[in-house]
Design a protein around this nucleic acid. Sequence first.
DNA 1: AGCCCAACACTACCAAAGGGACTATCTTGG
DNA 2: CCAAGATAGTCCCTTTGGTAGTGTTGGGCT
Lengths: 231, 231
Amino acid sequence: MAGKDRDAPDPAPVLTPTSFALLGLLNLQPWTTYELAQQMDRTLSRMWPRARSKVYEEPKKLVRHGLARATTETVGRRPRTVYRITPKGRRALARWLAQSADGPVFESEQVLKVFFADGGGRLDTLRTLHDLRAWVHERTMVNVEVGRAYLDGSAPFPSRIALNTVVGRLLDDLLECLDTWADWASGVVETWPDAPGEAPADQASLEATLRQAEARAERWLGSGSSPPAQP
Amino acid sequence: MAGKDRDAPDPAPVLTPTSFALLGLLNLQPWTTYELAQQMDRTLSRMWPRARSKVYEEPKKLVRHGLARATTETVGRRPRTVYRITPKGRRALARWLAQSADGPVFESEQVLKVFFADGGGRLDTLRTLHDLRAWVHERTMVNVEVGRAYLDGSAPFPSRIALNTVVGRLLDDLLECLDTWADWASGVVETWPDAPGEAPADQASLEATLRQAEARAERWLGSGSSPPAQP
DNA sequence: AGCCCAACACTACCAAAGGGACTATCTTGG
DNA sequence: CCAAGATAGTCCCTTTGGTAGTGTTGGGCT
């Protein structure tokens, strides 16, 4: 008619990284939406945090694209939907894994508050740093439980232990990094006057940070900057 | 009338952390919206990344709440708006700094791809890790420049050197953490078979991570778990 | 035997954020 | 003198976050 020859009423919403996060889970085994939401909360949220409501929408999108199939079962009179990946879905996942991705995103209201510490008092900053450490500790407790479950073999997906070890290492290192920093920063802030705006410069720290960054840059140029060999 | 005694047509949109991020910048000096957007890109985006369009909206919100005032100047025939903080704004900023905040958020499509590496080939994972290191290196270059500017005194806001040193330390530590991990992970993945799903477990690494987490937990219970003393 | 509560299985809605397209003026190097 | 790039924004649409709400089922307790 007046438009193009494709007059599709539902123009197939585009697949986002979140879609592939769900598809990746479906690649492990079939799940109900509820279970997918749980996995999202418990593990995926550490590297790809998304709202629960999205987790219920994305699998429908996957089905529309033919990357997953939905089967409805019933538990008593209550229906539930089980999703499983299709061969086309597996191929799409592999293609996604071969594409390049955006860099990481870090955001922290707490760090923002430290950055603007000169608008408040010294104790505000100390409390913010303390809250950050408390948050890290809470996360740590969960990680320790998961790690122990893998070591004594009671964890689900024992075949994923190698992958989980690698990624888990990063997630714990990031927590370690935050904890160490918050501890150090508390010590620094304690020596400050009551108005953080008048805090003296710490030239030595600045130089140490700069040296770390420069050393990293050299390491990169020396060893890692060439891409992995193609077959 | 029929409603409450407040029949405000525009119910004063609520202030978000992003609002306070802008307010914090205004606490340093007056800025034009364009300059605010630049500051957001160059520095705040490392701990509170927000889209450019938001940066143009938030100051208007601040004005509606009486936390900032806008004055329009002209450069030739082109008008521009300069925002400056009000005393009420300074008080609001101090109140915000005294409140507790949410924990940090980390998200990375690249790490997600490593997590689902078993859906693709070994080389995909190696390339993803390489891309991550390249991204870290790019960021590092910018940080090194900023750091050097502070050391030779050519940076803006010399009075903020203490604050910037503390926060800059964290931001560089996080980059260091990502780089070290990606380098280590590349070495691990290189020993894997072509299908990462069949990679052998690395019990030693898992145990090392667990020990790190447990040590951190003990450090917290031993020293830091009590909140800072109130005056 | 009956009841309560936690886990299960979602849907609906709206504010906030993302992000690109678009306009227009000013400055500066070649 | 002219083009390119910096300045100074506006507009709009989509995606996401996050909360509230609805009802079901199974297990434990009394």
